[in-house]
Design a protein around this nucleic acid. Structure first.
Lengths: 149, 149
DNA sequence: GTAACTGCAAAAACTTTGCTGAGTT
DNA sequence: AACTCAGCAAAGTTTTTGCAGTTAC
């Protein structure tokens, strides 16, 4: 599930190209934030991402994190996830995937499964036009279920 | 999909009993908020619920809405939904159901479907212990798809 | 009468905005 | 050189908290 160095570079190249095409600059901050998000597998909040990026780039500001996340979402390089609780959550995994949600620690892990990806929306949805289906499996993550035992 | 008067009364009775058992008072505010949530089918934010309750009970405060929603969630009479955007969303529908999420207006509608409810979590989840599956169908709601046409 | 609860106001947490100087092309 | 962007600080939202008076039991 982790991205290889090659995939990571390809994603970054994609962003560079897309920014050029849109007449936007490529700044070290924008690059660092995107890289940090690509290297995060826990759907970080803006604050959490701020801490990670700051370790590489101490002068960065939280406002830049927020602005850049908005930009990445607009450009289609990240998405804001539905989340319970106090802060927003982001993900740079743009491929179709499903989620494992731990009811104890609220961690959300990505996973892929062909059978689940084959699930289709019902035909009759009273006027609603379905586009894609996402599936959340709720339960206890490995760590929490071991902790209970 | 709407609750009948009988179901509504049964839910309220359940809350009354549960509060008694927990040594909690039953106040008109708590009752009014729960009723208003039961009668809402659009997963209202605290602010939206505030407006609805206030029409019946003009002196109620927003802080009471927040505190009561926390209480209802703790007691298992409501749940906080995962949501994108700026505010929390609540639902008093505690039965297993799925969601239609509009990508244009962010409205979330409940729906039930036997085929979807039959979807099972995969066996191998790398230590994750699945408990239940919830399915989100993303797309355009009736109103938004008509607006585009 | 006692304990729990509401409403208010203040505080805290999270997010957005306006501006100026700096960086990118 | 022109335009975009980062960082800062201030403002805007949303949510939580502390407390005094009120209500439910």
């Amino acid at each position: 599930m982790r991205r290889t160095a090659k995939e990571l570079d390809a994603s970054v190249d994609g962003l560079v190209a897309r920014c050029r095409a849109a007449g936007m600059n490529m700044t070290p901050q924008r690059l660092g934030i995107y890289r940090a998000l690509l290297e995060s597998y826990d759907h970080p909040s803006p604050e959490a991402l701020y801490d990670r990026v700051r370790s590489q780039m101490p002068s960065i500001s939280l406002a830049t994190i927020y602005k850049t996340l908005d930009t990445l979402v607009e450009l289609g390089f990240a998405s804001e996830l539905p989340s319970v609780g106090d802060t927003k959550r982001y993900d740079a995994n743009m491929e179709h995937h499903h989620h494992l949600v731990c009811r104890s620690c609220n961690a959300v892990e990505d996973f892929e499964d062909e059978a689940l990806s084959a699930v289709k929306a019902p035909r009759r949805l009273n006027g609603f036009q379905p586009e894609y289906v996402s599936i959340h499996v709720h339960g206890l993550c490995r760590r929490c279920s071991q902790a209970k035992a």
